[in-house]
Nucleic acid binder design. Sequence first.
DNA 1: CTATAATTTCAGTAACATCTGAAACTCAAG
DNA 2: CTTGAGTTTCAGATGTTACTGAAATTATAG
Lengths: 184, 184
Amino acid sequence: MAESSVEQNLQNAQDTFIRRWGEMGQTWGINRTMAEIHALCYIAGQPVCTDDVMERLNISRGNASMSLRALCDWGVIRRLHKRGERREFFESLSDVWEMFSIIAAERKRREMDPVLETIKQCQLMLDEATLGKTAAKRPDVQLTRQRLASMEEFVEVTNKIFQQFITNARSGLTRVVKVLLKAL
Amino acid sequence: MAESSVEQNLQNAQDTFIRRWGEMGQTWGINRTMAEIHALCYIAGQPVCTDDVMERLNISRGNASMSLRALCDWGVIRRLHKRGERREFFESLSDVWEMFSIIAAERKRREMDPVLETIKQCQLMLDEATLGKTAAKRPDVQLTRQRLASMEEFVEVTNKIFQQFITNARSGLTRVVKVLLKAL
DNA sequence: CTATAATTTCAGTAACATCTGAAACTCAAG
DNA sequence: CTTGAGTTTCAGATGTTACTGAAATTATAG
């Protein structure tokens, strides 16, 4: 096969992947462009510069700059200086598990922890010390307390699972996964 | 404590929970209002009608109607007729694990499965049969193939874990979780 | 059938998120 | 210092999603 055609096939395969990753990101609350930039850095497998991103995804310099910064803040890509180059380059982490772990940690901190705190707070509003013994026994109060407790248990367990993935990302994640899968 | 005050405390605790749940939903790609309606149905612990939802969350009839329907479509709340009542009521599933499992199943189907399919498709574009033996050996092609493979493995494993949660939601989820937690 | 309660639909609007492009800034080399 | 490649910032434009309210539809009771 001719050189140029190979080039094109490669480009094609990468673009297909990038698009899909962007779509998925969107439904998980990450904006399409950011997800696409990340996918590009990942699939390229080598450092890319701002202009690469702009051309490849057809976006403005401003957008590229802001999104690249945000991805660096998340920690899923890294800034990289090349000797004798004025431009900055960016490269993705190569370990998918590590990327996942970084994202999971952040989302746990930002979303699950606050929910847990809120539930505890709600429970406090409805305990005997606040309402008095008689009021705390009302069926409607009991019901709400029970639902809060179930939800708390759920979030608590999910939290622990997340935590395990996070702390085991680098070294023994495969072990964790294997245990889980074998047990099922 | 006076009756009215108890009422108010209960309302307050519920509202706090509802708000937080709505905020969390938003960052997970579920719109705030839908998440809030679901939270209301869940925390109320008893059937609520459209007007309850409208008053409690201060939204229009149209919005309430559409969102309630969507939640029914998801399967996390159910329509309910009361004898001699013209209005329709809605109640949430009470088992948090079951709700999670329903949502997980749907998201797996809608988001993870297509990603897997796309990755396989990309790999096909870059295999020997398509590119020829020489081209397939180019370092850039090899690199992309390697990255696709890593990502595929990750999604595949995640998929299996999801699947296990889904199929074990009703009966033995606690077992699954226990095994996982003990192993960590 | 008619009257009426409840629900659904949807066009228009409001609110929000994202993106652009140009100006301001940074910094290394001369 | 000056120059210019490279980067960042942000006001305004654009695009997207969510919401309202009123009209159309459906369902129930008499």
